[in-house]
Design a protein around this nucleic acid. Structure first.
Lengths: 145, 145
DNA sequence: ATTGGTGCAAATGCTTTGCATCCCG
DNA sequence: CGGGATGCAAAGCATTTGCACCAAT
């Protein structure tokens, strides 16, 4: 999947230009997620990370997301009809609010755990949950900044 | 995007084999969604619909989904890290439960509306919400059928 | 005959993967 | 030196779109 091919379909070595390598890109990605303090899409992570580490590739972002999800240090936040966003786990349990106007997702505090437990139908075992509120965020309601 | 092209890049008419046409595929798709009575992915809708109407294409599924969403007769249900699923709206307000084992999504009754309203931070305007519970469904807990 | 719905396939866009290379120990 | 991490590009999929053709009016 890399380098040029000769007439026989074989890879010609050494045809790829050198790329500036960066190590421990993972730390850059983690920093981006920590500083944002709200769920980000892979593309948003890429943009922010590239500002700190030019040349960082999208594949590294996805691989890091996958690794951290496996470790449990990152959690996915799903919004209907949109790409998943991700945020550092280990924070206090919380939920999210998405603005219909600007699409941004915000963390919100509090959780009606007990009330949700009551919704669980008989025969089902409840393990976790997710709540997403939708509406309009302060900037988009036209409030003065 | 269709038919064969000549050496000048022009479309050669009549090169596409005839397709069996079905009309009002929309009604087929609606029926699939109604009978399932739980959120389905576009691919799942396609499979079920093709059983009733062979030759029905994926494009029609997506177009119908888009039309119905615009009308408000269909709503998207988002699950983290997965493709959106869709279900007929107009039912009573409700939420969802996803089984970790088999990935199926079920409707559940009840909604702690007031409790959720209390979570809304100052300055935000709440318009709607979504709750997803995760766990294990009865068949997957190893219960006798 | 006209209009809208539809199948097909190409196009688009996001995510994953193969490979060679590079970094660090 | 060797193993793991990374950039790049191709591959893999899901979704959207262009077009011609069919169906119902």
């Amino acid at each position: 999947m890399n380098g040029e091919k000769n007439h026989f379909g074989e890879t010609v070595p050494g045809t790829r230009p050198r790329a500036r390598r960066r190590t421990r890109q993972r730390s850059v990605i983690q920093r981006v997620l920590l500083e944002a303090n709200r769920p980000l899409s892979p593309q948003a992570i890429l943009l922010a990370a590239q500002a700190m580490a030019p040349g960082l590739g999208i594949a590294t972002v996805y691989r890091t997301i996958h690794t951290m999800m496996t470790e449990g240090t990152l959690v996915a936040v799903g919004i209907p009809g949109e790409a998943a966003r991700y945020e550092i786990s280990g924070k206090e349990h919380h939920h999210h609010f998405q603005c219909r106007e600007c699409d941004a997702v915000f963390d919100i505090q509090g959780c009606p755990t007990d009330d949700l437990a009551k919704l669980t139908p008989k025969g089902f075992r409840l393990e976790s949950h997710q709540v997403v509120l939708y509406g309009v965020c302060p900037p988009c309601t036209g409030m003065p900044s």
